[in-house]
Design a protein around this nucleic acid. Structure first.
Lengths: 334, 334
DNA sequence: GTGAAAGCGCTAACAA
DNA sequence: TTGTTAGCGCTTTCAC
């Protein structure tokens, strides 16, 4: 049971001072090339692993980045986190992930604990009920930079990477109109959050620009999953005047819609067109394959990371807003 | 720009010793109830956040658990990690996640860095090419407990939570036989890893127990995604003697198979039955819905966590093997 | 019940 | 180029 090796152990073995070892291992200060080689060799031989806890503690800041998402399971977040981790790793950072479970209270606790870990920076997508940014302000006090992606609080002076949701919805609705649809519905999850409202606005604007009336009974909200899409579709198709196109705020909901329509023998896209958001691979599993509004995750990751790194390196917080333009992926449902 | 608050700040404000503050905040040792209340109040007022870096450093061990998975994106891993994080959080642990990208070399680097963070424990599912457990042994030297889940190295003396893959495949094949299928194929990802081999064995055994011949050309391997399932299905259906049932090693592959069959106008399950593994919600998106072999993730999480915690609390490593029995979720593809 | 002392492993700053 | 000193914030041990 060999106990943990420290720089002092390495130093003792070599009959030198542990500070020299520290310098050599980090390629800092000046150490004779010869001793440096010797040190690295010996460190390796003894199986020395730097104690990050001590390092980070001493440096008053860790090399850990925190990512806070509502839920890790949806493909969009899983993919973002996965890609972000790769990017961070390549830059020498380790990532801690936190799930707020869409609960603002939990989100606040997470932020508080993040401070305890003296993370180097935070990337967050807030819960759908997070309107205020107040619980993020403590990060500012601690001088910990943070960047919002995809979902940001309504008013915040932090950097953010957002998707042009208005445009995404606008184009999706326009695509359906272009393929001859005239009565288009919108299924949202809760409206509270800006991104869902932006989509709603884009939807309405597209109708208006095409001289199509907007009908409140075609705008429904609530839920997150296939079953919710299924239920909403049922309600919509029971309307006096049925829709001939449905925009779903998430692919999963869109798939639920398609499943309902098919069950009722309604043709997709001939009778009713469907478009979702997120480019979830699940959309390829369904039949017909779901047309979707894609938000480039690699681009969002790159931007988020960049905006964060600038702040970390400058040691100052700043405010920059980056808008990602969405793109419609045409498949079979429109 | 208020600088960080430490226990000394709290102590000074109250005119007491910082050690007393430390004790009060952790409810350790004996502190007069009255002062304790005062201390907590003041700490809260000043916005004191314990410096975890210092705490963990001083304690020589962090309250961080590491989870190492090949890839965070597949639903199985995303869900496991998500659930595991919840369980860990409730027990006061924070989680660091790492992706090995199915690369054993990277996996080794991850383990090494984990030691630097003095994590309290590690839960890992190894890459499909990890056969030896040698790079995990360093954890043993550092007395860091670890548990394998789902995929473990071939020979290891660490605790593990595995699924009875033999049984899962056996039952899946039996189910197809019971519904009248006689010529059943198996699409695997690589064979290297034990879990995929176990499934192969279960497949073969089921054939044998039903006096059905085993035909090598019905066993194919390679790939991970829908497109791979699609391609394999194409090859299988071009055979002289076509299969009437296909067992896919992953749901995504199974869905690819179904997509191919439907494209060719082959009826599922009437002409060909399909069963996958993982209970990926994606399987519900496809039509017909995919019958699948489910491995209870909540059970795996609970077991993994428990096996890990026992070791952490005992301060000793031990070896326990927990087998989770799979369950077939019947949907429409068989 | 509270305080004083010591030290975890590391690195910045200064000295030689 | 190398060594010495000091201290990060916290907790354990021992003394009062």
């Amino acid at each position: 049971m060999k106990s943990t090796v420290t720089i002092k152990d390495v130093a003792r073995e070599l009959g030198i001072h542990h500070v020299t070892v520290s310098r050599a291992l980090r390629d800092t200060g000046s150490v004779k090339e010869e001793t440096k080689v010797l040190i690295k060799q010996k460190a390796n031989e003894l199986g020395y692993k730097p104690n990050r806890l001590a390092q980070n503690f001493r440096n008053k800041r860790s090399n850990v980045l925190a990512v806070v998402v509502p839920d890790l399971r949806p493909y969009f977040f899983a993919k973002f986190v996965s890609d972000f981790m790769e990017t961070a790793k390549d830059a020498g950072y380790t990532v801690m992930i936190f799930q707020s479970g869409e609960k603002p209270g939990l989100e606040k606790d997470i932020i508080d604990s993040l401070i305890g870990y003296r993370v180097a920076g935070v990337v967050a997508s807030v819960t759908k009920d997070t309107v205020q940014a107040s619980h993020f302000e403590v990060l500012k006090e601690e001088n910990i930079p943070y960047v919002f992606f995809d979902r940001a609080p309504k008013e915040t002076l932090a950097s953010q990477v957002l998707v042009n949701n208005f445009q995404g919805a606008y184009e999706a609705v326009t695509a359906m109109i272009n393929s001859g649809k005239r009565r288009i519905a919108y299924i949202s999850t809760h409206y509270k959050h800006q991104i869902f409202r932006d989509r709603l606005e884009g939807y309405k604007q597209a109708l208006q620009d095409n001289d199509l009336p907007s009908d409140d009974e075609l705008v429904v909200e609530g839920g997150f999953f296939m079953k919710d899409g299924f239920a909403h579709a049922e309600r919509l198709m029971n309307l006096e005047e049925k829709p001939d196109g449905i925009l779903a705020v998430r692919d999963e909901i869109g798939i639920g819609v398609i499943k309902f329509l098919k069950k009722k023998g309604i043709q997709v896209p001939n009778d009713v067109a469907v478009i979702g958001f997120d480019n979830d691979p699940m959309g390829i599993a369904c039949e017909p394959e779901l047309t979707t509004v894609q938000q480039s995750i690699p681009l969002m990751v790159a931007s988020s990371f960049e905006l964060l790194l600038v702040q970390i390196n400058n040691g100052s917080l700043n405010f920059e807003k980056k808008i990602i333009e969405p793109k419609i992926i045409y498949r079979g449902s429109v």
